[in-house]
Nucleic acid binder design. Structure first.
Length: 318
DNA sequence: CATGGTCAAGTGGCA
DNA sequence: TGCCACTTGACCATG
């Protein structure tokens, strides 16, 4: 949605009347990646152990430079919402953010990225991967999850981004063992181990597996206790919802944001639109239907395999 | 230089 | 209790 209009009042009025949702995409810009500009260069453990910190720092500095270029590309294309890849900093359990911030180019790039994001009104966030399980029954897994979440929350802090779910760190619950209520309690115990910054940024997302947490589960078993916002994933909800309809689930999720602009996740079903042999959980390359918003205003993180291309295609059809 | 096997991570279903 | 599938993009050894 590219709006270039000298008459700001008119533009604001337009937004007000039409209740404009903003769109973002996750982690990878395929166009820039094809040109070698990637903020998610990773590193095998063997390489990290063999080549050490100098090599690691070089990779991270490259990722940060590419991230800034990606944000500039986003700005040029009217995109204000972006999820940062976890691979921005690989091997977060083998380095500390404090020691990395002693490296001048890393510190300078982080603050530069933050300044750019703030001056252009960009919303940046993280989403830890499926292996960060705060609710795990294994103490070492919880410790790793706490470290990961604190780390990326600290990265957002180092960028100078406001410490609220506007710049969130999103997680899945990741397990429902030994029982859903007990897993929720374990999650809350894990939450209490987080840094103050991470606690203020943390959000939780519904999942698609039959045993996993729906929006209602998140609301009843977690939100009522620690009041953190719920990110509804439309695709997950469509697969696993315990009979609650979309409008109700959406409404419940939006009600948890406490004045911060909510965000949701959206993707089309690959099985339904692109390849019947795909599992129901697979995401499509593009968006194939009008995203139902029920007249509500919030940000929409698109999780399409074709990334920014899917976003541009979708908004060009609005 | 292109390609495809391998890697990280943790859960959960199944022998 | 052990093993493998699951997921994903990028690494990196091989040809």
């Amino acid at each position: 949605m590219r709006i270039k209009n000298r008459n700001n009042v008119k533009v604001l009025f337009f937004y007000y009347i039409y209740n404009m949702n903003r769109f973002g995409y996750a982690c990878i810009n395929t166009e820039l990646t094809a040109k070698g500009i990637s903020s998610s260069r990773s590193m095998k453990l063997s390489t990290f152990l063999k080549n050490g910190r100098t090599h690691y720092d070089t990779t991270v500095i490259g990722n940060l430079g590419s991230l800034l270029q990606t944000l500039k590309w986003n700005e040029e294309h009217g995109i204000k919402v972006f999820r940062i890849s976890n691979d921005l900093f690989p091997h977060k359990n083998r380095v500390t953010l404090d020691e990395l911030l002693e490296v001048e180019p890393i510190r300078v790039l982080l603050s530069g990225i933050g300044e750019y994001a703030i001056s252009n009104g960009h919303r940046l966030s993280f989403h830890t991967d499926a292996y960060s399980v705060l609710a795990s029954q294994r103490e070492s897994v919880v410790a790793n999850a706490v470290n990961d979440i604190n780390f990326v929350s600290g990265v957002l802090d180092a960028m100078g981004l406001e410490c609220t779910p506007l710049h969130k760190v999103n997680v899945h619950i990741g397990t429902s063992k030994p029982s859903k209520p007990q897993a929720a309690e374990n999650f809350i115990n894990g939450y209490n181990l987080l840094s103050p910054s991470a606690k203020r940024r943390l959000t939780i997302e519904n999942d698609d597996k039959p045993s996993a947490f729906t929006v209602d589960d998140l609301y009843n078993l977690i939100h009522t206790h620690i009041r953190i916002p719920i990110v509804i994933d439309y695709h997950h909800h469509s697969i696993h919802n315990d009979g609650v309809d979309l409008e109700n689930a959406l409404s419940k999720a939006l009600s948890t944001w406490n004045g911060v602009r909510p965000i949701v996740h959206y993707s089309s079903s690959r099985k339904l639109y692109e390849d019947v042999k795909s599992p129901v959980t697979a995401h499509a390359d593009f968006i194939y239907e009008k995203i139902p918003t029920f007249g509500r205003d919030f940000d929409i993180m698109l999780e399409c395999k074709s990334k920014e291309q899917a976003l541009l295609k979708y908004v060009s059809c609005l």
